[in-house]
Structure formats: structure tokens, C-alpha cells
Write a protein that binds this DNA or RNA. Structure first.
Lengths: 233, 233
DNA sequence: AAAGTTATTATGTAGTACATATTAATAATG
DNA sequence: CATTATTAATATGTACTACATAATAACTTT
């Protein structure tokens, strides 16, 4: 019998620790009881008794949930369910150095997808004020050849585009993906840096006078060097 | 002196626990020492001594990092740095019931942005086989009026679109955002459900014969009811 | 030299003890 | 009587000890 077949019949021995289990149980418990943010949760010792584990284990699980922002604890007052910061947890693990290369590539593509998809929101929420600020950024750009300046320009300009969408979560997402983007582009530093046919000022002018479709085409042209680096897989 | 001014001058007393601090310190330590996945980390007791805190505190911090997949621990062998599952941590907190309404709205828009931005990747990586599978899904759709069938169709079809991009992270992202999407759409259930002018089969045909621009226009038309629900803010 | 046994080691779990902050209850004071 | 001080009670935060357990290393035995 081959190993593959064996592992289908023999379930893997659980390596879960008590803390893992308790963490899961607490999650299920909160959901089952349909606790809402602000609701008071049971005391530590009540959980200890109910779950039949040591306070140590319960505290490890609670510590995890606290890290995620799912619960808040105050001395004496006990614990309450809180609203987790969905992106905050993401930031914690988004270190290019410890993420798998395939995932990094995926995230790189994700960024491109986002930028291409922004157009509709941008056109919905752009204002003369917004565009003026964007134009200022484009005009202020240093045309020094040094890479770090180019990167700085890119961040400022594209960051502003995200801002115009009025979607703060999207904006934070972009900030988080920046290091990934920077990392991946440095990986291909041997290649000659090619800017797209359309630069930032061109995009501003399209925003002013052009149509949404013009903008989408312009953005693609601007990002074309990056799209060209993608493979069919 | 107003409270606002006061809080600018008087720094808020830190409510951080030792576990919070140790967690941060460990993060910095790993980065500073530029540990790579697979590298062995110091023993618990060594950390206890170095940090000058109880083993309890160290274990709470380690438990958090273990939850994120940043470290793995084996008895006797000690701990090693691991590759965290970037999306896994996201999933943990993405419960529509405990997320703030504004964030939900942001995520809803994020989903629209993603769908609109997929076109370039789809056209890069679509194959006859892919399109045939997509067409099958579109053809199999039950045209029952019931909402749950419509939702099922939507998930299957759009999920397949993500799949065609060949970007697994993107695909997982979509799966994670599904509940959010479902939740937000049910919020507007009082409205008459309007399907876009372009349906799934239309999109398939565009994929077969049309241009990328046709597809983008088609996708927008398909999602138009959702876009119409957006406000200028 | 190979196989079996024992010792060692690092993590996992349990339990006790006490510090500390915050609320609740009580007493003191005008 | 109302308000302030004081005290008590309580739940979390931290420290420490003890032992279980699994994986490895060291050591015997044949």
C-alpha cells in the first residue's frame, strides 16, 4: 500500500494544542451566542471551569483574540467583544522577507488588478479639488534618475489615486502592498527600467478631460512595463 | 484648555501588556537578525532570561505568532521561523457581524474594484479549456427566481473568473469576500433585484470573440446595479 | 555495527500566589 | 442629605513551580 493511499485512510494525528482548540471554541461560542461588539463576555475563570482547561491555556487563546482586536479586556470590568481591525492583522504578516515568492507574485498581480479597477470609483468620486491636488503631485515630481526618487513619486501619485476613491480601506490596502511591490520590482532590477508611454501628468489630463475608458486605457499604458513582466504561467 | 488640546500634550498612558511588548520585541528581533523561514529560534527559557519576563508572558506572545503561522514549534526541537499564511489571518477576523458597517461598505467596493480589474489578467491567461468550463457554468445556471439560486450562480461564475486569472491568492481573496458581499446585498433586499443588462453568457461570448475593452465594458454593465448603489460620499 | 535502552531536553499543561487597576460598597464629613 | 474619602471586592496581569510528553542524543548490549 502506497503512502498516499495510507494517508487517506489514516487520519493525521492532531497536533493541535489546547490553546488552538480553545481559541476555536471561543470563536464558535461568540458566533453561536451572536455576541455583538460591546457585549460583555464571561470571566476567565468561568471559561476555565466550562472548558476544563488551565487558566494558562485560556489566557493564551484570549491573548490571540486580543491581538486580533476581537476582544478587549479591562481589569475588573472583564472582557467585551470588540471590532477587529481587519487590515491590522494583515499588516502583521506582510513582510516580503518571510512570504513565499509565489504569494509575493500573486500580491504583485493583485496590486495591478486593483489599480486597473480603480477607474470606476475614481470617476464616481473625483472632484476638482482632488484632481488639483493630484496634479500638484505630478508637477512636483523630481525627474531625477535615481530609483528611490522614482519610487517616491510612484507612491505619492498612486497613493493619491487611492485616496480619491474615498475608500479608506482600499487606501490602507495600498499602503500595505507597497513594500511587496517595491520588493518585487527590485527583483527585476537587472532589467532596464522602462516607464510606460503614459506618465502621471498624462493621467491627470485624462482625468480632467477624458472619459472613463480613456483613463482605463491610459492606466494600462502607464503600467504596461509591469504587465509585460507577467507570464502566462 | 480643551480636552483635544490636552490629549495632544499629554501622551496617553500605555495600556500595553507585557505580552504585547514581547510580541513586538520578538518581531523586531526576527527582522533584525534577518531570520529566514526554517531557521531555528531561541528556546523559550532563553527568551525568558533575555527579556526578563515570566515564561507565561513569553508563551502568550509566542502563541500569537504561532497562530499567525509565523513560527512553528516542535517538542524538544524548539521553534523555527515559518511562512505565515497571509490570507489565513485575514479570514479569522472577516466576520460580517462584527465588522463595522463602513468597513463592510469599503470591502464591498473593493470587490467591485477587483472584478473590474480582473480583465487584463483574464485575457492574459484565458484558454479555450478555461472558457469552455466557464461557459458550462453559465449554461448550467438555474433560472429559478429564488435568491439563493441566483447567489449560487453568481458565486460559481465569478469564482471561475478569478480562477482563470491563475492567481490563487486572488481566488482565495474572493472566497473570503463572498460573505461580505452577500451580507451587503441582503441589506438592500428591499430594493427590487435588478440584473445587469449583460448576463453571464454574454460575458462568455465576449471572452470568446470580443476584445479586452469589450469585456471591461461588459463587466461594468453586468455589475451596474451594484455600481448604481454606490454614493458619492 | 546494529538494535535496543536510557537520559536529556524543550515544549505543553496545570496550579498557586500575588500585584494592580477598577468598580462597588461603605463610612466620614460638611 | 449630598458629597467626598475610605475600604472592600473583583477580574485581569504577571511570576513561579511542578510535572507530562514527545523528540532527540547518548549510551549499552549483543
Amino acid at each position: 500500500m502506497s503512502v498516499e493511499n495510507l494517508s487517506k485512510d489514516l487520519e493525521r494525528v492532531s497536533t493541535e494544542t489546547m490553546a488552538d482548540i480553545v481559541e476555536l471554541r471561543l470563536r464558535e461560542f461568540f458566533k453561536k451566542k451572536s455576541f455583538k461588539p460591546g457585549d460583555a463576555l464571561p470571566k476567565e475563570m468561568e471559561l476555565v471551569v466550562a472548558l476544563g482547561v488551565s487558566r494558562n491555556v485560556v489566557r493564551e487563546a484570549l491573548s490571540r483574540l486580543r491581538m486580533l482586536g476581537m476582544i478587549e479586556t479591562r481589569k475588573k470590568r472583564g472582557m467585551i467583544l470588540a471590532r477587529p481591525d481587519v487590515l491590522g492583522t494583515f499588516e502583521r504578516v506582510l513582510d516580503p522577507l518571510i512570504i513565499d515568492d509565489h504569494i509575493l507574485q500573486d500580491l504583485f498581480e493583485l496590486r495591478l488588478v486593483l489599480e486597473m479597477g480603480l477607474a470606476d470609483l475614481i470617476f464616481l468620486r473625483k472632484t476638482d479639488k482632488n484632481i488639483a491636488e493630484l496634479e500638484k503631485i505630478a508637477l512636483d515630481e523630481t525627474h531625477d534618475g535615481e530609483k528611490r526618487f522614482r519610487v517616491k513619486n510612484e507612491i505619492a501619485f498612486h497613493g493619491k489615486l487611492y485616496e480619491i476613491t474615498g475608500n479608506n480601506t482600499l487606501k490602507r490596502f495600498q499602503v500595505m502592498l507597497m513594500p511587496v511591490f517595491g520588493y518585487v520590482t527590485t527583483l527585476e532590477k537587472d532589467k532596464e527600467y522602462q516607464t510606460g508611454k503614459v506618465d502621471h501628468l498624462d493621467l491627470v489630463n485624462i482625468l480632467k478631460n477624458g472619459t472613463k475608458e480613456d483613463f482605463k486605457a491610459g492606466m494600462y499604458a502607464h503600467l504596461k512595463p509591469h504587465f509585460d513582466s507577467l507570464t502566462k504561467k
